[in-house]
Protein backbone atom coordinates (compact mmCIF):
# COMPACT_ATOMS: atom_id res chain seq x y z
CA UNK A 1 0.00 0.00 0.00
CA UNK A 2 2.75 2.34 0.95
CA UNK A 3 4.45 1.72 -2.34
CA UNK A 4 1.27 2.44 -4.27
CA UNK A 5 0.82 5.67 -2.36
CA UNK A 6 4.27 6.95 -3.23
CA UNK A 7 3.78 5.83 -6.82
CA UNK A 8 0.65 7.96 -6.97
CA UNK A 9 2.49 10.94 -5.54
CA UNK A 10 5.25 10.63 -8.11
CA UNK A 11 2.69 10.07 -10.88
CA UNK A 12 2.34 13.63 -12.15
CA UNK A 13 6.08 14.04 -12.40
CA UNK A 14 6.54 10.65 -14.07
CA UNK A 15 4.03 11.67 -16.75
CA UNK A 16 5.87 14.98 -17.11
CA UNK A 17 9.23 13.24 -17.37
CA UNK A 18 8.03 10.75 -19.98
CA UNK A 19 6.47 13.49 -22.09
CA UNK A 20 9.23 16.07 -21.85
CA UNK A 21 12.41 14.09 -21.15
CA UNK A 22 12.13 10.45 -22.21
CA UNK A 23 10.22 10.92 -25.47
CA UNK A 24 12.37 13.87 -26.66
CA UNK A 25 15.51 11.91 -25.78
CA UNK A 26 14.30 8.98 -27.84
CA UNK A 27 13.55 11.32 -30.74
CA UNK A 28 17.06 12.78 -30.50
CA UNK A 29 18.53 9.27 -30.42
CA UNK A 30 16.48 8.23 -33.45
CA UNK A 31 17.34 11.36 -35.43
CA UNK A 32 21.01 11.17 -34.48
CA UNK A 33 21.43 7.73 -36.01
CA UNK A 34 19.41 8.29 -39.19
CA UNK A 35 19.79 10.51 -42.25
CA UNK A 36 17.12 12.42 -44.18
CA UNK A 37 16.15 9.23 -46.03
CA UNK A 38 15.57 7.45 -42.71
CA UNK A 39 18.52 5.06 -43.13
CA UNK A 40 20.95 4.20 -40.36
CA UNK A 41 24.13 6.31 -40.32
CA UNK A 42 26.93 7.28 -37.97
CA UNK A 43 27.75 10.47 -39.89
CA UNK A 44 25.88 12.70 -37.43
CA UNK A 45 27.88 11.27 -34.52
CA UNK A 46 31.27 11.48 -36.21
CA UNK A 47 30.40 15.03 -37.34
CA UNK A 48 31.73 16.28 -34.02
CA UNK A 49 35.28 15.51 -35.22
CA UNK A 50 34.82 17.84 -38.23
CA UNK A 51 36.74 21.02 -37.42
CA UNK A 52 33.73 23.29 -38.03
CA UNK A 53 32.05 21.49 -35.13
CA UNK A 54 35.06 20.54 -33.02
CA UNK A 55 36.42 24.08 -32.82
CA UNK A 56 33.19 25.52 -31.34
CA UNK A 57 33.09 22.55 -28.95
CA UNK A 58 36.54 23.35 -27.57
CA UNK A 59 35.67 27.03 -27.42
CA UNK A 60 32.56 26.15 -25.39
CA UNK A 61 34.59 23.88 -23.15
CA UNK A 62 37.31 26.44 -22.43
CA UNK A 63 34.85 29.28 -21.99
CA UNK A 64 32.63 27.36 -19.58
CA UNK A 65 35.72 26.38 -17.57
CA UNK A 66 36.66 30.06 -17.29
CA UNK A 67 33.06 30.94 -16.38
CA UNK A 68 32.93 28.22 -13.71
CA UNK A 69 36.26 29.28 -12.22
CA UNK A 70 35.22 32.96 -12.22
CA UNK A 71 31.94 32.13 -10.52
CA UNK A 72 33.72 30.00 -7.91
CA UNK A 73 36.39 32.61 -7.15
CA UNK A 74 33.69 35.25 -6.76
CA UNK A 75 31.20 33.26 -4.76
CA UNK A 76 33.33 31.28 -2.28
CA UNK A 77 34.76 34.31 -0.41
CA UNK A 78 31.36 35.99 -0.58
CA UNK A 79 29.64 32.89 0.80
CA UNK A 80 32.20 32.76 3.62
CA UNK A 81 31.42 36.33 4.60
CA UNK A 82 27.66 35.89 4.23
CA UNK A 83 27.64 32.69 6.30
CA UNK A 84 29.59 34.36 9.06
CA UNK A 85 27.37 37.40 9.38
CA UNK A 86 23.96 36.04 8.60
CA UNK A 87 22.82 33.39 11.04
CA UNK A 88 19.32 33.66 9.62
CA UNK A 89 19.06 31.71 6.37
CA UNK A 90 16.55 34.13 4.91
CA UNK A 91 18.62 37.17 5.58
CA UNK A 92 18.17 40.21 3.43
CA UNK A 93 21.80 40.27 2.30
CA UNK A 94 21.50 36.86 0.71
CA UNK A 95 18.31 37.96 -0.95
CA UNK A 96 20.07 40.91 -2.52
CA UNK A 97 22.43 38.54 -4.31
CA UNK A 98 19.59 36.38 -5.57
CA UNK A 99 17.40 39.32 -6.51
CA UNK A 100 18.63 39.51 -10.13
CA UNK A 101 17.26 36.00 -10.66
CA UNK A 102 13.76 37.39 -10.24
CA UNK A 103 14.20 39.17 -13.54
CA UNK A 104 14.09 37.45 -16.89
CA UNK A 105 17.58 36.44 -17.95
CA UNK A 106 17.13 37.73 -21.52
CA UNK A 107 16.38 41.17 -20.13
CA UNK A 108 19.47 41.03 -17.94
CA UNK A 109 21.59 40.05 -20.91
CA UNK A 110 20.07 42.87 -22.96
CA UNK A 111 21.00 45.22 -20.13
CA UNK A 112 24.61 44.04 -20.43
CA UNK A 113 24.44 44.91 -24.11
CA UNK A 114 23.49 48.47 -23.22
CA UNK A 115 26.32 48.64 -20.70
CA UNK A 116 29.02 47.23 -22.96
CA UNK A 117 28.17 48.93 -26.27
CA UNK A 118 30.89 51.16 -27.69
CA UNK A 119 29.02 54.22 -26.44
CA UNK A 120 27.25 52.38 -23.65
CA UNK A 121 27.10 53.18 -19.96
CA UNK A 122 30.52 51.68 -19.23
CA UNK A 123 32.36 53.84 -21.75
CA UNK A 124 30.32 56.93 -20.89
CA UNK A 125 31.37 56.44 -17.28
CA UNK A 126 34.99 55.89 -18.22
CA UNK A 127 34.85 59.00 -20.41
CA UNK A 128 33.61 61.13 -17.51
CA UNK A 129 36.46 59.82 -15.36
CA UNK A 130 38.91 60.64 -18.14
CA UNK A 131 39.81 57.08 -19.18
CA UNK A 132 40.06 55.67 -22.69
CA UNK A 133 37.04 53.65 -23.82
CA UNK A 134 37.18 49.85 -23.75
CA UNK A 135 35.65 47.86 -26.58
CA UNK A 136 34.27 44.80 -24.81
CA UNK A 137 31.11 44.36 -26.85
CA UNK A 138 31.16 41.47 -29.35
CA UNK A 139 34.20 39.79 -27.80
CA UNK A 140 34.71 36.52 -25.95
CA UNK A 141 35.27 38.53 -22.78
CA UNK A 142 31.77 39.99 -23.06
CA UNK A 143 30.25 36.53 -23.48
CA UNK A 144 32.20 35.20 -20.48
CA UNK A 145 31.15 38.19 -18.42
CA UNK A 146 27.49 37.81 -19.34
CA UNK A 147 27.47 34.07 -18.72
CA UNK A 148 29.29 34.36 -15.39
CA UNK A 149 26.87 37.07 -14.33
CA UNK A 150 23.84 34.98 -15.25
CA UNK A 151 25.01 31.80 -13.51
CA UNK A 152 26.67 33.37 -10.47
CA UNK A 153 23.70 32.79 -8.10
CA UNK A 154 23.73 29.08 -9.00
CA UNK A 155 27.26 28.86 -7.60
CA UNK A 156 26.70 31.13 -4.62
CA UNK A 157 23.58 29.49 -3.21
CA UNK A 158 24.75 25.88 -2.80
CA UNK A 159 28.12 26.97 -1.36
CA UNK A 160 26.40 29.35 1.03
CA UNK A 161 23.95 26.64 2.10
CA UNK A 162 26.80 24.21 2.77
CA UNK A 163 28.77 26.79 4.77
CA UNK A 164 25.92 27.90 7.05
CA UNK A 165 25.36 24.26 7.98
CA UNK A 166 28.88 23.95 9.46
CA UNK A 167 28.60 23.81 13.25
CA UNK A 168 30.26 26.89 14.75
CA UNK A 169 31.53 24.68 17.61
CA UNK A 170 33.72 22.79 15.16
CA UNK A 171 35.40 26.04 14.15
CA UNK A 172 35.68 27.22 17.75
CA UNK A 173 37.22 23.89 18.72
CA UNK A 174 39.80 24.24 15.97
CA UNK A 175 40.61 27.76 17.17
CA UNK A 176 41.03 26.47 20.72
CA UNK A 177 43.48 23.90 19.46
CA UNK A 178 45.52 26.68 17.87
CA UNK A 179 44.54 26.46 14.21
CA UNK A 180 45.15 29.60 12.16
CA UNK A 181 42.40 31.03 9.94
CA UNK A 182 44.11 29.55 6.90
CA UNK A 183 44.21 26.09 8.43
CA UNK A 184 40.54 26.37 9.41
CA UNK A 185 39.67 27.33 5.85
CA UNK A 186 41.75 24.55 4.34
CA UNK A 187 41.00 21.71 6.75
CA UNK A 188 37.43 22.51 7.86
CA UNK A 189 35.53 24.99 5.69
CA UNK A 190 36.62 23.70 2.28
CA UNK A 191 36.12 19.96 2.88
CA UNK A 192 32.80 20.45 4.68
CA UNK A 193 31.42 22.70 1.94
CA UNK A 194 32.61 20.40 -0.84
CA UNK A 195 29.14 19.00 -1.65
CA UNK A 196 27.95 22.59 -2.14
CA UNK A 197 30.94 23.41 -4.31
CA UNK A 198 30.33 20.35 -6.45
CA UNK A 199 26.69 21.12 -7.04
CA UNK A 200 27.61 24.75 -7.72
CA UNK A 201 30.17 23.72 -10.31
CA UNK A 202 27.71 21.32 -11.94
CA UNK A 203 24.98 23.93 -12.06
CA UNK A 204 27.26 26.48 -13.71
CA UNK A 205 29.43 24.31 -15.95
CA UNK A 206 26.72 22.17 -17.57
CA UNK A 207 24.37 24.93 -18.72
CA UNK A 208 27.21 27.20 -19.84
CA UNK A 209 28.55 24.35 -21.99
CA UNK A 210 25.43 24.45 -24.15
CA UNK A 211 24.91 28.21 -23.96
CA UNK A 212 24.13 30.06 -27.18
CA UNK A 213 21.76 32.97 -26.52
CA UNK A 214 24.30 35.01 -24.57
CA UNK A 215 26.86 34.40 -27.31
CA UNK A 216 24.30 35.70 -29.81
CA UNK A 217 23.43 38.80 -27.83
CA UNK A 218 26.83 39.83 -26.50
CA UNK A 219 29.15 38.18 -29.02
CA UNK A 220 27.73 39.81 -32.15
CA UNK A 221 27.61 36.34 -33.74
CA UNK A 222 31.41 36.38 -33.87
CA UNK A 223 31.71 34.00 -30.92
CA UNK A 224 30.52 30.68 -32.29
CA UNK A 225 29.88 28.07 -29.59
CA UNK A 226 28.73 24.46 -29.96
CA UNK A 227 25.32 25.65 -28.73
CA UNK A 228 25.17 28.03 -31.69
CA UNK A 229 26.13 25.23 -34.10
CA UNK A 230 23.31 23.03 -32.77
CA UNK A 231 20.81 25.88 -32.74
CA UNK A 232 21.68 26.71 -36.36
CA UNK A 233 21.29 23.06 -37.34
CA UNK A 234 17.70 23.18 -36.10
CA UNK A 235 16.77 26.75 -36.94
CA UNK A 236 18.59 28.04 -40.01
CA UNK A 237 17.26 28.09 -43.55
CA UNK A 238 19.09 24.83 -44.25
CA UNK A 239 17.92 23.05 -41.12
CA UNK A 240 19.27 19.53 -40.56
CA UNK A 241 17.64 18.00 -37.49
CA UNK A 242 19.73 14.84 -37.90
CA UNK A 243 23.02 16.70 -37.64
CA UNK A 244 21.64 18.79 -34.77
CA UNK A 245 20.55 15.66 -32.89
CA UNK A 246 23.90 13.95 -33.48
CA UNK A 247 25.80 16.95 -32.16
CA UNK A 248 23.47 17.26 -29.16
CA UNK A 249 24.06 13.62 -28.37
CA UNK A 250 27.84 14.03 -28.59
CA UNK A 251 27.63 17.05 -26.29
CA UNK A 252 25.47 15.16 -23.80
CA UNK A 253 27.88 12.23 -23.73
CA UNK A 254 30.82 14.60 -23.27
CA UNK A 255 29.13 16.33 -20.33
CA UNK A 256 28.26 12.98 -18.71
CA UNK A 257 31.85 11.78 -19.11
CA UNK A 258 33.26 14.98 -17.61
CA UNK A 259 30.85 14.72 -14.67
CA UNK A 260 31.81 11.08 -14.07
CA UNK A 261 35.53 11.93 -14.15
CA UNK A 262 34.87 14.82 -11.82
CA UNK A 263 32.96 12.64 -9.34
CA UNK A 264 35.69 9.97 -9.36
CA UNK A 265 38.37 12.58 -8.84
CA UNK A 266 36.41 14.15 -6.01
CA UNK A 267 35.86 10.80 -4.24
CA UNK A 268 39.54 9.93 -4.43
CA UNK A 269 40.67 13.24 -3.00
CA UNK A 270 37.98 13.61 -0.34
CA UNK A 271 38.15 9.99 0.75
CA UNK A 272 41.83 10.16 1.58
CA UNK A 273 41.38 13.34 3.52
CA UNK A 274 43.94 15.30 1.55
CA UNK A 275 42.42 18.63 2.59
Amino acid sequence: MKKLGSMLLAGPYIIWMVLFTIIPLCLILYNAFTNTDGNFTLDNITAITDYVNAKPLFLSLSMSLVVTLTCFLLSFPLALVLSKYSKNKNSIIVMVFILPMWMNFMLRTLAWRLILLNNGFLNKGLGILGFDPVYLMNTKAAVILGTAYDYFPFMLLPIYNALVKIDKDVINAAKDLGATSFVILKRIMLPLSLPGIISGITMVFVPSMSEFVIADMLGGNKVYLIGNVIEQAFNSGYADVHLGSGLSLSLMVLIIISMVIYKLFDKGEGGHGIW
Binding site: Y51, V52, K55, Y224, N228, V229, Y238
Partner: peptide
Protein backbone atom coordinates in the same frame (compact mmCIF):
# COMPACT_ATOMS: atom_id res chain seq x y z
CA UNK B 1 24.57 22.82 -48.52
CA UNK B 2 27.84 24.21 -49.90
CA UNK B 3 26.90 27.76 -48.89
CA UNK B 4 25.99 26.47 -45.44
CA UNK B 5 29.34 24.71 -45.09
CA UNK B 6 31.29 27.84 -46.13
CA UNK B 7 29.25 29.93 -43.73
CA UNK B 8 30.23 27.64 -40.85
CA UNK B 9 33.87 27.82 -41.89
CA UNK B 10 33.66 31.60 -41.72
CA UNK B 11 31.98 31.46 -38.33
CA UNK B 12 34.66 29.27 -36.73
Amino acid sequence: ALYNRLWKELKV
